[in-house]
């Protein structure tokens, strides 16, 4: 019993300490924005490895998600004779929910895990200590460019995901299930609101990108510098960031679209 209490206490203390460390880490990472302004090539390089390399999986997944939405939406809507609304249905689901959420989840799996492993291994091989001894701040030099690259690329990836998804829905709905093409587009145009749907979707994906980047980079930086420690940290990144994305999605949806 005492032992359990001790363990509970220790776990609580450790997680509080970790939260504190991660907050300082984030503030330090964000303060690196000035260094990025001086060395934009660092950011560009990360935009490539974090953003461009995730593009393929985002495009393909977006296409399939859109196609599935087209199929499912058609069967449900045709029961009510509302096939013409397929365009709105597909676009709204994508822009509001699936675009930001699924692309953030894919991003966490593809780029987040890679970031944690990269930073963790840099720590394990003393590259971060080495930089410190060369009077170069590893957080500003290594972490900040990656942090901002994630914050910038996740919304773009989500936008691409949604656009490709709409094309997928169109392929299935208009191409295979003969929904009227004019109705598909015009209903979409008149019912998707720029502020309510698109801007809110972008806000969501900025928040998700920020969250995934924070978790992935901190887990790497805080990893136990051994092969086992890095592999555990990588797992934690994927699990924690997926969980945070889904939980934050609920909160943001409630704030944006709900009347809570």
């Amino acid at each position: 019993m005492i032992y359990l209490l001790q363990r509970l206490g220790r776990t609580t203390c450790n997680s509080l300490a970790k939260t504190g460390r991660s907050a300082f880490f984030l503030a330090h990472g964000l303060s690196g924005v000035t260094d990025i302004a001086l060395r934009p090539y660092l950011l560009i390089k990360q935009l490539y490895s974090v953003g461009v390399l995730t593009l393929l999986i985002i495009t393909i997944s977006g296409l399939f998600v859109g196609m599935v939405l087209g199929l499912q939406g058609y069967y449900t809507l045709s029961d009510f004779g509302a096939e013409e609304s397929l365009g709105v249905m597909v676009a709204a689901s994508l822009v509001r929910e699936l675009g930001p959420v699924v692309s953030a989840l894919l991003f966490a799996g593809r780029a987040g895990s890679a970031l944690t492993a990269e930073i963790g291994l840099m720590k394990a091989t003393e590259q971060l200590s080495g930089m410190e001894m060369m009077a170069v701040d590893p957080i500003k030099r290594i972490i900040s460019p990656r942090l901002f690259a994630c914050i910038l690329s996740v919304p773009l990836l989500a936008a691409i995901f949604s656009s490709i998804g709409v094309i997928g829905g169109h392929l299935v709905g208009v191409g295979m299930l003969s929904v009227d093409e004019g109705a598909f587009w015009s209903q979409m145009q008149s019912n998707i609101d720029f502020y309510d749907d698109i801007v809110n979707g972008i806000i969501k994906s900025v928040v998700f990108g920020f969250m995934v980047a924070w978790i992935a980079l901190f887990e790497g930086y805080d990893a136990v510098p051994t092969s086992e420690g890095v592999s555990r940290a990588t797992t934690r990144t994927v699990v924690n960031s997926s969980f945070s994305v889904l939980a934050l999605d609920f909160i943001l949806t409630a704030l944006m679209f709900g009347d809570i």
Binding site: M122, E126, Q127, S129, G130, E132, M134, A135, V136
Partner: peptide
């Protein structure tokens, strides 16, 4: 630290840079 050099046990070279760029790194910074 700019006045101290430290040679790490493992070398601690930056793995994504060539030998040349590694040596140039502190100079460029």
């Amino acid at each position: 630290r700019k006045k101290m050099g430290m040679l790490f046990q493992s070398g601690a070279l930056l793995t994504d840079l060539t030998v040349y760029d590694n040596v140039a790194f502190p100079l460029r910074e």
